[in-house]
């Protein structure tokens, strides 16, 4: 075994450089915008690079708005939408991943391709296609009306936005889940059945616990982008009643003269998402330890 600490330090340099260049510095820049000021002439962000001079007044305003002002509703709505979309994604995605891993047989590659290929198309194009399909004169709406279901999907309803989130991100849930399930030792399930467990008990007591790492990874993979998503709501609703935190960030950064508020919301969201990440890291760590035992 190579014991030279210099070698290991040297090998860590590329990763450290990557982390500093692509995470630490940009994150610090966002903080400098958030706690900076506005150029009085050009009305764009004037970052304050010296942390000792950071202006915290605006942060206080945003926190008040998030806890008891207009942004509180947006924040709660975003959490509810994301959790609803995640639950629905698991309900839809887990059986698909399970089927692919366990029962697809020779058709596995074909079925995997069928799931992945539509997602080669740009997200925007796919959503615009849905806008056409769901519009009152669209194909899907007309098809549903044949069965007496006349529902205006695009009238700014939360259901449409949540379904849009599910549609947009579900492949990112299916694929890691599939990868986890495919590696499962199915003999353990057979053993559980041999020992008297019903199929549902074997699933609940063996398959699910052994899939925890994949479930956590899939959950994190879709939760992170869903929290920052704004274009799904932009394209499928655009109603104030479905506004998400990402829409407010977009507004502040692109369409207002208060870009620092957008940067502050980014920081708040990052801190919130850190909770998800810590949960993921803890659960994978615990799972790794259990596996070693």
């Amino acid at each position: 075994m190579i014991k030279s600490p210099r070698l290991w330090t040297g090998l860590a340099i590329p990763g450290t450089t990557w982390l500093i260049t692509l995470f630490a510095i940009p994150f610090y820049a966002v903080a400098c915008v958030a706690f900076g000021t506005i150029d009085p002439i050009f009305r764009d962000a004037a970052p304050q690079w010296n942390p000792l001079l950071w202006n915290l007044d605006q942060a206080q305003n945003i926190l008040v708005s998030l806890t008891s002002g207009p942004l509180r509703g947006v924040f709660i709505r975003t959490v509810v939408y994301v959790i609803s979309a995640m639950i629905l994604s698991f309900v839809i995605g887990f059986p698909i991943a399970y089927f692919l891993a366990r029962h697809a047989g020779k058709r596995k590659l074909l079925l995997l391709s069928l799931i992945i290929v539509p997602f080669w198309v740009n997200y925007l194009m796919r959503m615009l296609a849905w806008v056409n399909l769901l519009s009152p004169s669209g194909l899907f709406s007309r098809f549903m009306s044949m069965f007496g279901i006349n529902y205006n999907w695009l009238d700014g309803s939360p259901t449409t936005v949540i379904l849009g989130l599910v549609y947009g991100y579900i492949p990112f849930l299916i694929l890691p889940l599939y990868a986890t399930l495919e590696r499962l030792d199915w003999r353990l399930i057979e053993a559980a059945r041999d020992l008297g467990a019903s199929s549902s008990e074997a699933f609940r007591l063996v398959t699910v616990p052994m899939s925890k790492a994949g479930l956590a990874a899939a959950g994190v993979l879709i939760a992170l982008p869903m929290f920052g998503d704004y274009y799904t709501n932009d394209l499928l609703s655009r109603s104030p009643n479905t506004e998400m935190l990402g829409n407010q960030i977009d507004f502040y950064l692109n369409n207002s003269t208060q870009p620092q508020n957008g940067a502050l919301l980014v920081l708040v969201m990052s801190l919130f998402l850190a909770i998800f990440m810590s949960f993921y890291l803890r659960s994978t760590n615990r799972f790794a330890k259990e596996t070693v035992k």
Partner: peptide
């Protein structure tokens, strides 16, 4: 003025936040 502009923005947020 930025201060007045902020008042307008606050009302816009109150409207669009739903």
């Amino acid at each position: 003025d930025p201060e007045i502009d902020a008042l307008w923005t606050d009302q816009w947020i109150a409207f669009t936040a739903g």
